[in-house]
Design a protein around this nucleic acid. Structure first.
Lengths: 337, 337
DNA sequence: CTTTTGTGAGAAAAGGATTTCTCTAGTTGA
DNA sequence: TCAACTAGAGAAATCCTTTTCTCACAAAAG
């Protein structure tokens, strides 16, 4: 075990070992230029043998590409960011691209610091992401010298943006409930001020028709309890299905129903939204819920930002990615075909 | 609005604007070298005026410092990583250091790819982090050419490592329960195979004395329910306090108690561990729980890795950082002094 | 009046790759 | 046989800073 750090091997060393010039070595390794196959493999072998790894800084300096991208987010709690990050990373890692994660906590000054730091470091692109699909980050990313992709956050007019297709997700949830024979489906969701609330509720109304009933509240288990109280204490027919705006509300609803002695899913089916594992899986019974496929959203964002960085032109506008219904046990019904 | 990206201003431009050489400009901006104050301010003014930002790649190339560090983690779910990351970032951002986040999912091959990518990019240091304090990451970080700090994961023999002082946290929880007059305190926790389970349980035993009783199970709400069943269905005196190994178990316990008509905190006090906001705050009543101060752990890890990168020598070994009891309502007792 | 010391500033090298020329030699075509 | 190409490889420029010398000049010392 030697304690002296071994000198980094440079392309110069590879060239010498292979008996060629530095220029030829560079071209051989990058599969550019012209030379005999024999020379190329000889250089590559030498590189492998010596364990050559090009100095990314030197490369970045001349190519003006750093093989890094920045992920900017104000979702401190990471509920949405992490799956997204996982997807981005997955899409980029085999291109040799690494990801700076910058959490900016709704602080414009902090955001500016992070953006400047990223620009200094010559990131090839920036992915902007947030905890709300209908809010912009507190920093202006237009007219930057690098491409920007907006994922799960509001984009400026001519930005390239990716969001989940909440409306389709809602429709799917409602259709699922209908296919199970449910007839009186109520929607319990978050505050109207959220765009996704309106979008999900709108799609729900369209799918359910005239019997639609939406209860707006907060994004909490507490609200789930209250909503059940409202529904069951009111006169008239009680619902046989509740489609919730997120998993926390759904959990509250399920717990409240159990406490009232209403059987889930025998008497009432419940569907959540978000597929937040920790909530959805711990609910008794585990929640059937709409997954926004944030990881795939991340992958796509990664691909897009890379394409933009490579100079490809990408049509601006909003791209909607499909949601997927994850069937567990809170609705009844088996795994779907 | 001009559509052509403005040419980046180089130090050469600043030098020219200030009427000095590039060398002088560099020294002026970095507060090194010798020159009149007048020259220095003249250069700095020019730099500000032109909006000069040094090219980090060129700087890194020569200084062999990239002002980046890597955070390696196998905690896919991000429960521990995110607070840690927030702390690291907070400690480093005003030094101009950015953080690469690399999620490696227990995959040695992926881990190696990420580590190599980071080394290529000349990170100044690496912070290794995991979801278990008693497991090493599936990758060897010894004898790397950059310093490594282990945070919330097991370190090799001569590594620099940071963990939370779980034992002290447990003691504090027990003392709190005692101070509220609780006399029969039971510990319901996770699987024995976790080092933190043994450590927390050990400290609990020491603090409680001969009446100590520990129930080992899994890290789930489900287990919380089962444990309550075991305790209440058994003959003999029931506990007046339950100290849980994590918040999920605690939530299960609280729910189970409520279902049995046992009042929390009136009849029984419950304490959790982790302060996982989403679980702790949604429990009815909200959980009093031990917070591992992961953000502070992250800050400290950031400071340490920077110190190491700067060539300072840091004593190897395990540093334990204090936990903090977060008082909510599941124990009774007011906010602590 | 000469020598030493100190100060301010610039020239040039270095850092490690990529890329554009340039050059030689061999091949093809007329 | 001679011009025109082409393939293979290398020399040198380039990317942008930092840093180490070197130098000129002025002030202090002898």
């Amino acid at each position: 075990m030697s304690l002296v750090a071994p000198k980094r091997v440079r392309i110069y060393d590879v060239a010498q070992a292979a008996g060629v010039s530095v220029a030829t070595a560079s071209k051989a390794l990058n599969d550019t230029g012209r030379m005999t196959d024999e020379t190329r493999t000889r250089v590559k072998d030498a590189a492998t043998r010596l364990g050559f790894r090009p100095n990314a800084m030197a490369r970045a300096l001349i190519q003006k590409r750093s093989f890094t991208v920045g992920l900017l987010t104000n979702d401190t709690y990471g509920r949405f960011t992490l799956p997204l990050m996982a997807g981005v990373s997955e899409a980029l890692v085999d291109q040799g691209v690494s990801v700076f994660l910058c959490a900016i906590e709704d602080d414009p000054a902090l955001a500016k610091i992070h953006v400047d730091a990223m620009l200094d470091k010559q990131v090839d692109g920036i992915i902007a992401s947030g905890k709300r699909i209908d809010r912009q980050l507190p920093v202006d990313l237009e007219n930057l010298s690098v491409p920007v992709v907006y994922a799960f956050t509001q984009a400026p007019a001519n930005g390239v943006s990716l969001v989940s297709d909440d409306a389709a997700g809602s429709r799917e949830a409602v259709e699922w409930l209908k296919s199970l024979g449910r007839r009186r489906i109520v929607h319990v969701t978050g505050p109207r001020s959220f765009a996704s609330v309106e979008e999900r509720a709108g799609a729900y109304r369209d799918a359910v028709g005239p019997t639609a009933e939406v209860l707006f509240g907060t994004w909490s288990e507490q609200w789930g309890h209250e909503a059940v109280a409202q529904l069951w204490d009111a006169a008239g027919e009680t619902p046989d299905a509740i489609f919730c705006g997120n998993d926390q509300i759904a959990r509250g609803v399920v717990d409240a129903l159990r406490e009232r002695g209403v059987a889930v899913p025998a008497d009432v089916s419940v569907v959540g939204f978000d597929n937040w594992e920790i909530v959805a899986a711990a609910t008794r019974p585990p929640l059937t819920t709409v997954d926004m496929n944030l990881k795939e959203l991340g992958r796509e964002a990664g691909r897009l930002v890379l394409a933009l960085a490579a100079g490809e032109t990408v049509e601006p506008g909003i791209r909607k990615l499909p949601c997927a219904l994850v069937v567990r046990q809170s609705c009844g019904g088996g795994p779907r075909s």
